[in-house]
Design a protein around this nucleic acid. Structure first.
Length: 577
RNA sequence: GCUGGGAUAGCUCAGUAGGUAGAGCACAUGCAUGGUAAGCAUGAGGUCACGGGUUCAAAUCCCGUUCCCAGCUCCA
């Protein structure tokens, strides 16, 4: 965002606050910054504001804009500031947080005054009234803390010109069409059935499951090549396991209630993570340094009790499958393993043509287990790994897991919301808790380092991201149906069935449209379902043994013999284009 | 969980001075046998989210619950 547009947005948020204060009684103001794509302002207000009220506020803003008030900066003392904002508790709180000697400035525009660092545009009339729009109303905790009061937040946006505003709104509408929840229904990929099964529980329909299977196969092959072995663990285990791991103490609010069998017998717990299970496999044998590093992977399904308000399509669910792996190694191997995981991860993301992601290093949280020195060591190891492969990253302070710091890769959805997918976590603590060891060169027991990692994160979330990333038009290798056979009339139904059987043998996902419809409609239907290839089969094709092929992105691409076309498809599938 | 808005056919949605429900698509049947982006007709399909209340009468008004949407907080 350029400084210019940021100034404009921030200034417009002042104008909005001014308008709201003029329209409603007893308005207390929070903060009102510029953000990506717009601005917001938070209000503590007795009246309820709904989206229906926005036009009214916009009108008032237009009035203020037309008045052309100058934005004037004044530097004031703490005492003066407290006097100016004597009726504004949020502002007073902020003023009192200024350290001694820090410059406190206010900005005036007309009779509106705000505690503000600036900078601002010159005057309110520099805002083009046709280039701003208020977008939505939402609640937001004061200072972003759940224990604080919830304020009313109004979001808006502004651009330099009305044309840019229209473009933004247009793009936003287009982006909404890519929403995986919408496409999931349209393409019949999955469903979530709160009434019949429960919120946040995903049903993968045949089309969605076909994509998942393809992703899983790819994942499996890649991991095997990288020296991973696969294990499987049960979905429930006695609660003492979760006591040992620390989950009962540190993670219980995200866990489903315990499963009680008989009165007085031990309870069972539905796993919210896979690591304790993997550790039990480890601990069932004696290990030598010679085996290391051990890389154990599993597509492990976990269940987490998430608050209803956070559930979101496939992106945030209550039951999901992680492409989890745990690497057990010596300390001396740790750095190399971390680097390997980073490279592996980036490589896999590249296959799905992801380029636009952000990397975060999350450090020690408030609630943590273990010793600070070990945390520091783990954080340094991750940092070093990131730097060695030259990956740009941001620090996310206090966002680590309770047992260790992590590096996350977050990917944007169609509306720009970031979702954590890949994660790599270095853990010295759970090995401690489980008293894990291996025999070193000298015949002594030594504690292994554990690296937890997932590349997709969860298959559900990754699938959601993928649907939006491709806008529902999956590349051939992932497409639920790769080829639609379209007979022109009933005369070719039988021939198409035969063709289908042959193509299935070649591992092509193919289906026949045997509806009693016109050709043009069948083409339209296949396009609606984003099927990459169609083969039109009429009398001519039946006689010649050729297929008339249509590619979704290019239209009619001519005719091919069946064998040639199979080779063409297979080549494209292998290349994962 | 919190703030605001919602929940009507498989899907997208109409249905405000309270009077027991409609459209398009999809589905089934019939007609049409169609050559590269939606042929015509007919039919079937709904405890209007769930539970309570007000009323002679509730999809419609009120309360609660569940879930959904946009944010916030929290997370893969």
């Amino acid at each position: 965002m350029s400084d210019n547009i940021e100034k404009l947005r921030h200034s417009t948020s002042h104008i909005m606050a001014d308008a709201v204060m003029k329209l409603y009684d007893n308005v207390k103001i929070g903060i009102g910054p510029a953000i990506d794509n717009g601005f917001y302002y938070d209000f503590d207000i007795e009246d309820k504001i709904s989206e229906d009220d926005l036009p009214k506020i916009e009108e008032k803003m237009a009035e203020i804009i037309h008045k052309g008030h100058e934005f004037k900066k004044e530097v004031v003392s703490r005492k003066e500031a407290l006097e100016i904002f004597k009726d504004q508790p949020c502002k007073k709180e902020l003023i009192n947080e200024f350290s001694e000697g820090e410059v406190i400035s206010i900005y005036l525009s007309g009779d509106f005054v705000d505690l503000c660092r600036g900078p601002h545009i010159k005057k309110t009339s520099d805002v083009n009234v046709k280039a701003f729009k208020l977008l939505k109303v939402a609640g937001a905790y004061w200072k972003g803390e759940e224990k604080n009061k919830m304020l009313t937040r109004i979001y808006g946006t502004i651009f330099n010109t009305p044309k840019e505003l229209r473009k933004y709104i247009h793009n936003y509408e287009l982006a909404k069409k890519r929403d995986h929840r919408k496409l999931g229904k349209k393409l019949d990929l999955f469903s979530i059935q709160p009434r019949n099964a429960g919120a946040g529980l995903v049903f993968w329909h045949p089309a969605g499951a076909a994509v998942r299977r393809e992703i899983e196969d790819f994942w499996l092959k890649e991991h095997r090549q990288k020296g991973y072995e696969f294990i499987n663990i049960p979905h429930i285990a006695k609660s003492n396991l979760w006591k040992t791991s620390g989950h009962l103490d540190f993670y219980s609010e995200n866990m489903f209630p315990k499963l009680e069998l008989e009165e007085g017998r031990e309870e069972y717990i539905l796993k919210p993570m896979n690591c304790p299970g993997h550790i039990l496999v480890y601990k069932n044998n004696l290990h030598s340094y010679r085996e290391f590093p051990l890389r154990w992977a599993e597509l492990g399904t976990v269940y987490r009790y998430e608050k209803t308000g956070v559930l979101h399509g496939l992106m945030r669910v209550r039951g999901f499958t992680q492409d989890d792996a745990h690497i057990f190694c010596r300390r001396s191997q740790m750095n190399e393993e971390i680097e390997r995981v980073f490279k592996f991860t980036l490589n896999i993301l590249k296959t799905f043509r992801f380029k636009d992601y952000k990397v975060f290093l999350s450090t020690r949280p408030h609630k943590y287990v273990g010793k600070v020195a070990q945390w520091d060591l783990a954080e340094r190891a991750l940092k070093k790994g990131l730097e060695n492969i030259g990956l740009d990253y941001e620090i996310d302070p206090g966002e680590g897991v309770f047992y260790g710091p992590k590096v996350d890769i977050k990917i944007k959805d169609s509306l720009g919301r970031m979702w954590q997918c890949s994660t790599i976590q270095v853990d010295f603590n759970i090995p401690d808790k489980f008293d894990m060891d291996f025999v070193n060169k000298d015949g002594n027991k030594e504690r292994p380092v554990m690296i937890h990692r997932a590349i997709f994160g969860s298959l559900e979330r990754f699938f959601g991201i993928l649907i939006e990333h491709y806008g529902g038009r999956f590349p051939l290798w992932l497409a639920p149906v790769q080829l639609k056979l379209i007979p022109i009339s009933e005369e070719q139904f039988e021939y198409c069935d035969k063709l289908r059987a042959g193509l299935l043998k070649e591992n092509i996902r193919v289906s026949v449209n045997n509806k009693d419809e016109k050709l043009s409609k069948k083409i339209w239907q296949a396009r609606e379902m984003e099927i990459p290839y169609m083969a039109i089969v009429g009398e001519r094709e039946l006689e010649s043994g050729k297929l008339s092929i249509r590619k979704i992105s290019e239209g009619d691409i001519g005719s091919f013999t069946v064998d040639d076309f199979i080779q063409k498809l297979k080549k494209e599938i292998t290349l994962k284009k």
